[in-house]
């Protein structure tokens, strides 16, 4: 059983600069910030290391950080430009009973994160959901399609904070 500081030190020694920092401000859990293009390697280390054994990914959540600048579109609607989208990984070890949270950030205009499909098989659908809701591209994912919304949904990514719902979908009126 290790606490977040020890896990952070272990990762820092192994991966150096790709571990960006430890966020201890949150009241309930510490978050390790990780580079988005190395998450697969780091995940595999976290799972296979005998002192860590993070064999279970509890949840993978996409988040729209909304830290860009608000701009007006040409037709007057609010848009967010710049800033980042983030993905949080909540890991748990069924064997050693410790938990850790990882966070990766990626630019909003071209959001790309490495897939952890081959580390934790469960991230398959979680990543598809994050793609569906936020448009985050998971590199090397075998089957990155929409999962909850219809496959032919063209109006964008619903959980982004500047999402605009269409008036009609296949002839059905969408707003109330």
């Amino acid at each position: 059983m290790k606490n977040p500081e020890e896990i952070f030190e272990l990762l820092k020694n192994e991966f150096g600069d790709t571990i960006l920092g430890l966020d201890k401000d949150t009241p309930t859990e510490s978050i390790i910030l990780v580079d988005s293009m190395n998450i697969n390697k780091i995940g595999a280390f976290l799972r296979n290391n005998n002192d860590l054994k993070f064999d279970s990914l509890m949840v993978l959540s996409g988040v729209d950080d909304t830290n860009g600048t608000k701009v007006k579109d040409e037709d007057g609607t609010d848009m967010i430009s710049g800033g980042t989208l983030s993905v949080y990984y909540h890991l748990h070890s069924t064997n050693l009973k410790h938990k850790i949270t990882l966070k990766v950030s990626t630019p909003r205009e071209n959001p790309q994160v490495e897939s952890t499909y081959n580390v934790w098989r469960t991230s398959d659908w979680h990543e598809r959901e994050a793609y569906d809701m936020f448009g985050i591209i998971f590199l090397n994912h075998p089957d990155l399609r929409r999962i909850l919304m219809p496959y032919d949904w063209e109006a964008g990514y619903p959980l982004r904070k500047d999402y605009k719902n269409p008036e009609f979908y296949k002839g059905m009126k969408v707003p109330y």
Binding site: D25, T26, P27, T28, E29, I31, M58, V59, S61, Y88, H90, T101
Partner: peptide
């Protein structure tokens, strides 16, 4: 301000809220 992940054992398994 902050984040929290809490989980409970629901009849179907681990229900978590982030």
């Amino acid at each position: 301000k902050g984040t929290v992940y809490a989980r409970v054992e629901n009849p179907r398994g681990e229900l978590g809220y982030f």
